[in-house]
Structure formats: structure tokens, C-alpha cells
Amino acid sequence: MSVRHNVAAIVLAIVVVLSTAACSASTVGQAQPVPTVTKAAGPQIAVGTMRVTLPVGAKYTEHSQDGLLDGCLSEGTVICEARLLDLRETTSDPNAPINLPSAKRPFGWYTGTDVPTCITPASPPGQAAEATGSNLVDSGFAPVGPKKAEYGRWRVTCADETQNNEVRMWWLPTSKILVVEYGAFEGWDAKMDTLLAGATFV
């Protein structure tokens, strides 16, 4: 065999040995590092004594110029997905026109004294049709951070039947904080439950 063939054979043998070592090193069963996935979080807001972290991309309007969007949580094209309201000042005024939130009355999620409206993703405040019915389908207590809130879920019918929807409410009577989720469905339900589960209080 020529010298050139001997050199080629030696180089080939070294490549095979190195390749085999590399393969065996990766299959020995050693634990591979798992990438850490950090859940993204949006801004933190204060509603009365409650602090919550919004979903990424969500926005909270504490006060709007016309008052229609006060306390609204919005995302994307949805102008008022939910309301988070501090009612301490309103409930302390004996002359304020307010119905206290309660799961014991048909429109218990609505604090106004006028006709309730059917706020949904397609019918924001100011454009929503009149609510014609509100039937309680679930009630009890639900967690808001370390606290328990009075909870209710209503099936709401509307003058414009395309706006029929479900509404969820959390009411903290001591903290005077009201949370109302409009046009409730599975995706938003999970999001609101997560948001409220992470609530803290000062």
C-alpha cells in the first residue's frame, strides 16, 4: 500500500472515532438543560386597594373624557372587555344614584339606576342595546388574590338579539371593588380568572 493510501486510511479512522465519540456523548443520558420559559406580563395597575397585572397588550382606562370607558380593560379591537372599578367614593355618598352589586338580583352586575345595556366586543359602551333580561346561572364566592368575592354569572338577553351574552361579576364589599366581565366566554374567563388570582392588596 502506498504512503498516500496509508495517510488517507489513518485520516478516515480518526474521523470515524471522533464521530462515534460525539454521538455517544450526546446519548449517554445526561440531563439536557431545559430552556426557561418566562410568562410575559403586561403593566400593573391599581384599582382602589387592589393591584393586578394586565395581560400583555391590554390597556386600562381609569377615567375617560365622556365617562363611558371608566374602568374599562381593553385589548386589540375590543374597547371594553371588562370593568375594574373602585366604588369607595360612590358608595360613601348617600345621594349617589347607585345599585350595590349583588348576585341576589337579576341585574346585580349593573350598578346604574338607569336601563342596563348589553356591552359586548361588538357593542362597546355608548353603542350597546338595552338589556331586556338577566338570568342568574351561577353564584357563590370566588377568589380575588387572597380575598373571596361575591361572584355571579348571568345570561343576558338584549333588545338586539345578536348582542345576547353572559356577564360575570366579582364584588368585594369591604374593599368596595367591583369587577365585571362582559361578553364572557372560555378564553376571557380563563384570562380574567388568572388576572384576579394574581391580585394583591395594600
Rank of each mutant, 00 (worst) to 15 (best):
V37D: 09
V52W: 02
V34M: 06
G108Y: 01
R88A: 05
A82S: 13
I79S: 13
G76V: 06
L100R: 12
K39G: 14
N99E: 08
K39W: 08
W109F: 10
T77R: 11
G112E: 06
T111Q: 13
G67K: 07
T90G: 09
G48N: 03
T111M: 12
P55I: 06
R83W: 07
D70T: 00
S102H: 02
P101F: 03
V52D: 07
I45N: 02
S92V: 02
L85V: 02
D114P: 00
Q65A: 06
D70M: 02
T36G: 12
K39L: 15
T91E: 14
I45A: 02
D114W: 15
V47W: 01
L68M: 14
W109S: 14
Q44V: 05
G71A: 03
Y60A: 05
C80D: 07
A103T: 02
K59L: 10
P101E: 05
C118S: 08
T38F: 03
M50I: 04
L69C: 11
P94Q: 04
K39E: 15
A41Y: 11
C118G: 09
F107N: 11
L54Q: 12
D70C: 03
A40F: 11
D114K: 12
P33Y: 01
T36M: 10
A46D: 11
P33Q: 04
G76Q: 13
L68K: 13
S64L: 05
R83T: 15
A96L: 06
D93Y: 06
R51L: 11
A46S: 13
I98F: 09
T111H: 10
I98V: 05
P97L: 06
A46G: 08
G67T: 06
T113K: 13
A58Y: 15
A41N: 13
G57Y: 12
S102G: 03
G76Y: 07
I45V: 06
D70A: 04
K59C: 02
L100D: 04
C72Y: 02
L84S: 07
L69E: 12
H63K: 04
V47G: 02
T117W: 11
P43W: 01
P33I: 00
L85W: 01
V37I: 14
I45S: 03
T91D: 09
L84Y: 03
S92M: 09
L73S: 07
G71T: 01
Q44H: 08
G108Q: 07
G71W: 00
G76D: 11
V115E: 15
T61H: 00
T113M: 10
R105Q: 10
L68R: 15
S74D: 08
Q65H: 11
P97S: 03
